[in-house]
Design a protein around this nucleic acid. Sequence first.
DNA 1: TTAAAAATATGACATTTATCAGTTAATACT
DNA 2: AGTATTAACTGATAAATGTCATATTTTTAA
Lengths: 229, 229
Amino acid sequence: MESRCENCIIRQFNSLRAMSKEELKQVSDSKTTKIIKKGESIFEEGEKLNGVYCVRSGVSKLSKLSANGKDQIVKLASKGEVLGQRSVISQESTNLSAIAVDTMEVCFIPKESITTTLQKNPDFTLEVLRHMAHDLKEADDVIVNISQKTVKQRMAEAFLYLKNNFGEDADGFLSLTLSREDISNVVGTATESAIRIISEFKKNGLIRTSGKKIGIKDERKLLEMVEGF
Amino acid sequence: MESRCENCIIRQFNSLRAMSKEELKQVSDSKTTKIIKKGESIFEEGEKLNGVYCVRSGVSKLSKLSANGKDQIVKLASKGEVLGQRSVISQESTNLSAIAVDTMEVCFIPKESITTTLQKNPDFTLEVLRHMAHDLKEADDVIVNISQKTVKQRMAEAFLYLKNNFGEDADGFLSLTLSREDISNVVGTATESAIRIISEFKKNGLIRTSGKKIGIKDERKLLEMVEGF
DNA sequence: TTAAAAATATGACATTTATCAGTTAATACT
DNA sequence: AGTATTAACTGATAAATGTCATATTTTTAA
C-alpha cells in the first residue's frame, strides 16, 4: 500500500509534478497515508492545517456550514486534487470542511515540505498558482450560476457535471452516487426541492434512477435546459 | 501625471512590491497609463488580455453576463488591485468584464513583464499566489452567502461591505455610490426587489438615502439581519 | 431651459422555492 | 429476521422573489 511519491502516478495530475527529485524525496519521506471512511472528515471548517492532503482515490466534498444549519458544497475533489493548499498558503485556518463521500485514500504532506518548495522553486509555485487561478475561475462561474439560474437549471447542470467529471458505470449510471441531500447541497436548494425535481426529470424522460443511483437519459435536453430553453 | 512605478505608492498594496529593482524598472518602462471614464470598459468577458491593469484610482466592477441578460457582479476592485492577473496566468481569455463605476486611472502592464517575473522571482509568484488564495476564499464565501441567505440579508451585507471597503463621505453616506441596478447585480436579485428592500430598510430606520446615495443609520441592526435574527 | 431619456419607485400579480407534515422505502443494527 | 433508524418521496401551504405595468423623479443633452 505504502509507496514512494516519486513513483506515484497521481502526482502527474497536480502541481507536485513540478517538484525536483530532492524535493519529492523530502515529501515522500515525510508523508503519511491515511484511509478515510465514507462520511468521515479529513478536516473541518476553522481548523488550522499542518499540511495538505493529496487524494489518491475516492471523492471528498468541500463544504461550508451556513448560519441556518445547511451545508453548501463548494467543490467535489477527487484523484489528484490537493486539499488544504489554500489554507497552508495563506497561513489561515480553513474555510471549508472536507468530508469523504466514498472511502478515500489520501496522503498527508506536512506543510513544511510545501512552504519550503514554494519559496525555492518558482516552477512549483507557478504550477500551484495556475491551478488556483483555475479554481477561482470555476468559483466565479458557480457564483453566476447560483444567482442567475433556476434550481431546475442548476440541477440539470449538476447531473451533467457529475457525468463529465466522474463518468458513468457499466450500466450507464453516474459513477459518483450522492445522497439527495448532498445533491441539494451542491445545487444550493432544499432537499425536498431537489427530490421533486429528480421526480420531474424522471417523468419527463431526462434521467432514470435505481435506488439512489441516477442515469442520464437525455443529455441534449438537459443541456438545453441549462441554457434556458 | 505619468510617473515611475518605483515611486508609486499603490504598489505597496499589491504583489508588485515583491519585484526587484530591475524588474520594476522593466515594468515601469513598458507600462502605459490610461484614464477610463465612468461606464467604459477596461476589458470585456472573452477577450484575450495582453497584460494586466493596476488600478491607481477609481473603482471597477468585475462582472459576468448570464444567459438571461443580467450581469452578476463578482467583485468590486479599487486602488491597488491588479485586474486580469488570473487570465494572464492561466493564459486563457478572461471570464469577466471590467467596467468603471467611477472615473478610473489604471496602468497597463504588458504580460511579458509579469510572466517573466513569475518564472524567475519566487517571492513575487508567492505573493501573487497568496493574493489569489485570498480571492478564492472570498469567492467561496460569496457562494455560500448567495445560496444560503435571503435577498434581504444579502442586501444588508452589501451595505456593510460597501461601508467597510470604501468608507463614508463627510455627510455619512457611502463613498461608493452604485446605481440600484448595480446593487441588484452585486446581490444577485432583480432590480425591483433591490429597490423594494431599500425602501423597506429606509422605513425601518436601517438606512437613509439622498438621491442614489445611501447612508447607514443602524449598523447593529443590519449586522443582526445578516446573522439571521 | 426644456424635452427626451433613463433611473427610481410602487402596486398587482405570477412563479418559484421553502417549509411542514406525513408516508413509504431503504439501510443499519442487534 | 425483525425492529429501529435514516433516507427518499409526496402533498399542502406559506413565504420569498421575479415580472409586468405604470407612475414619478432624476439625469442627459440639444
